[in-house]
Design a protein around this nucleic acid. Structure first.
Lengths: 231, 231
DNA sequence: ATTCACGACAACTTTTTTATTGTTTTAAGT
DNA sequence: ACTTAAAACAATAAAAAAGTTGTCGTGAAT
């Protein structure tokens, strides 16, 4: 049986995120000193849109989805959050509140790191900051693509996008589709659940994909890419 | 259609919590300036045990339950959170993290108030502070009773307690039992779900209560009080 | 050592949620 | 105005979750 300290050290050393590798021992110490670890159970909110954000979340393991809450029942899914990723980074540098919600798709071991600590380390360690900025850039790019998709594509293209995106995660998490309902897929594509169901059936009939319970196998990858491209 | 400002003023003035009445206009302003309002949907976590707490939650309307997370699946329910109550107060004065979880039983309109603001107002306004302390005292008393129950009572007594407690909320929220599953009741009493089901049946057979779908009517109040007292 | 309280498990039923399908409106694009 | 895309609605089917019940085992109290 391990002590808490041993477990902690193991985590901080085993961390896969490239950015933590850049930290000097004393910087690691700053992070360690102001962090806490929490187990979020499946379906727990990691962040709640609009709530005050005094910390950043770092996913040790587990999967979550990040989404925008609308007025009523309509959410829009932005991305799948994977182990080694941050949640709520923007809260550190600009906003004082989380600008999106996220919820655990599986049990998630999460580090919470107070934003002052992250801010301090960023100021001290340029490489670390650089990596953080890189993550921002990636997220920005994703968001721009998202907006583009919403603006210019319709059902078929959006669903193709969604399927390709989720399918791309299979290399790390082969049962990723098991974690997602039709409504989840709909919220990724930004269309209704019913349309999603119908569209998946059509894609299957055309031999593009294969539906096996909740799992979806991509058969004609290129064709989907083409559908996505055409919009 | 109201503007946001009008809505805010309405809320801040309509607040039923006695403690807010004690605030001077400029103190109200401090609170207003550092608050944000969030709609938590049913089943959303208001607080997550172990997560950093930089703010206090004040329930405008809606109901939630507060509970302790155990190792695995076993939670222990502490109380029902009602409109006009605070959540996470202890985070302001002592702990840096929430020491319990809570989850919305209905949609909840919540004010989040940064703890610095609460701290500041408490220092300025003794009456306000006094009210806060009173709330603490009440919570402490409850916790002591809880510990007592867990230590000294067994199934029958605990369930009687639970039923009396929940029933006491009916005056404000007549359909309160509709919001609670058998597991919820079990987690309040600190016994297994199966035992809860059996015990409720027994209580009904003995004419102490009446089960109507999810609702539970107390028939022999005094008898339950006696069972609770005997333990 | 025996009894009693209560949780654990297993089988089953009921209720609730999710998925599916067809039909009808709405609304946007041409 | 006409065509098409996609949401909304409604009805049903299927799957999952919650609730119920009986039996059995374990550990605490006497």
């Amino acid at each position: 049986m391990k002590t808490i300290l041993e477990t902690d050290r193991e985590y901080i050393c085993d961390i896969k995120a490239p950015c933590f590798q850049a930290l000097l021992p004393e910087e690691v110490e700053v992070v360690r000193a102001s962090k806490t670890q929490v187990l979020f159970r499946k379906d727990d909110n990691l962040t709640k849109q609009g709530a005050f954000a005094s910390y950043v979340l770092f996913v040790i393991d587990g999967y979550a989805k990040q989404y925008l809450e609308g007025d009523g029942i309509k959410n829009y899914n932005l991305r799948i959050i994977k182990p080694g990723e941050f949640v709520g980074l923007s809260a550190v540098f600009s906003e004082n509140t989380f600008n999106y919600s996220s919820v655990a798709l599986t049990d998630c071991h999460i580090f919470l790191i107070e934003k002052e600590a992250i801010g301090k380390v960023v100021k001290q360690n340029g490489t670390f900051g650089f990596n953080i900025i890189k993550r921002y850039c990636a997220q920005n790019t994703n968001l721009l693509n998202t907006v583009r998709n919403l603006m210019y594509k319709q059902m078929n293209g959006r669903m193709a996008d969604t399927l390709l995106y989720i399918d791309g995660l299979k290399s790390e998490k082969s049962d990723i589709f098991q974690l997602l309902s039709r409504k989840d897929l709909a919220d990724f594509a930004g269309i209704s659940t019913e349309s999603t169901v119908k569209l998946l059936k059509i894609f299957e009939k055309e031999g593009l994909i294969k539906l096996q319970e909740k799992d979806i196998k991509i058969i004609k990858h290129n064709a989907l890419v083409e559908i996505s491209r055409r919009g």
